[in-house]
């Protein structure tokens, strides 16, 4: 639609063509912004359609609550994988959160300007390291640490608690996956928390310090209550990153489809299931539907957490 050109501007051919270019760009650019919005729906629908064949044979509940995974016999129970994903993610986030929040607090409230300027490249580097390199590091450093140090010690002193019992001889375990994940999502959580802390007006802190509070009291009673929802949203966002992390976790977590009972048990998260078996999925009936269904389930879980926490964060940060 051509917009009317105001009367007071001379209608030269140049002006007309500039206007045309502008309105053409407006429409063309608008089409491009449709891509991200549409892409979310397209990805979800495409994966769901590939999931559909198996849903005709088994109910969703049967798949999600089933504990046996025998594709050859047509048994597709996702529960061990969902449990594996949950354990690794929950433990990873639990390990990551305290040091991350403290680091962000340190950087935002205590650290000198020079430390602060050093932090940004450091976090960027940590975030830039590819997943597979984290996996290599996990296999070389974390798996032996868990297998040879943490497992014997915790098993000896806390082994009576099933959570810490050691049922297998290696370090390829939920805990190893969780430690690798914790380091991987740390830069992410620190960056968000730091950004959120920066939104608090300096005057609030000064008022608190001015009436004699220590810095920790200021943090505890003034800063933290203000930003708690946003920090939680940041943590949830970090958790949803962890949920989908594939290669690094796959390399250290053991990949045995079982219901884990202890942090030293091997687990088998959903992304690892997909990545490990994509090669043979076309050879067994319904196997491809099951694996792409796993991707669909993973996507739905992540979308849920992601959309919620993004909305909370967007309110705070802008």
């Amino acid at each position: 639609m051509e917009k009317p050109i105001p009367l007071f501007s001379p209608i030269t051919p140049a002006a007309v063509s500039r206007r045309r270019a502008d309105s053409f760009a407006n429409r063309a650019f608008f089409m491009i912004t449709l891509i991200p919005v549409a892409l979310i729906f397209i990805i979800t629908i495409a994966l769901f359609l590939r999931f559909l064949p198996i849903l005709r044979e088994h109910s969703l509940w049967e798949l999600v609550s089933g504990v046996t995974w025998k594709p050859n016999k047509g048994e597709f129970g996702f529960l061990p994988f969902i449990a594996g994903t949950f354990w690794v993610t929950a433990l990873g986030v639990a390990l990551a959160v305290p040091p991350c929040i403290l680091t962000a607090l340190y950087l935002s409230e205590y650290a000198r300007a020079t430390t602060r300027t050093l932090m940004k490249p450091l976090l960027d580097l940590l975030a830039a390291i590819p997943s597979v390199v984290y996996g290599v590091w996990g296999m070389l450093a974390i798996v032996p640490l868990v297998g040879d140090v943490l497992r014997p010690i915790l098993n000896r002193y806390l082994g009576f608690i099933p959570l810490f019992a050691s049922n297998q001889p290696t370090g390829f375990s939920i805990l190893a996956g969780a430690i690798v994940l914790a380091v991987m999502i740390a830069p992410f959580i620190i960056a968000i928390t730091y950004e959120v802390l920066a939104t608090i007006p300096q005057g609030l802190r000064q008022a608190s310090l001015g009436i004699g509070a220590t810095q920790w009291q200021t943090i505890r009673y003034v800063v933290l209550p203000q930003v708690l929802p946003a920090i939680i949203a940041g943590i949830v966002l970090g958790a949803s990153r962890a949920l989908g992390e594939t290669l690094a976790v796959l390399m250290v977590v053991g990949n045995i489809p079982q219901m884990p009972n202890s942090i030293f048990d091997a687990g088998y998260p959903l992304p690892a299931l997909i990545a490990n078996n994509y090669g043979e999925m076309m050879s067994i009936p319904l196997y491809d539907a099951a694996l792409l269904g796993a991707a669909f389930i993973l996507l739905v879980i992540i979308l849920f957490f992601n959309i919620l926490s993004t909305i909370v964060l967007q309110r705070v940060l802008k």
Binding site: I40, T246, N306, T310, I311
Partner: peptide, 19 residues
Amino acid sequence: VRLSLDVLWGIPSIVYGAF
């Protein structure tokens, strides 16, 4: 658009791969 970009950013690469 910004919300959907943020959401897309959070979709793991394995899901992109499967898609």
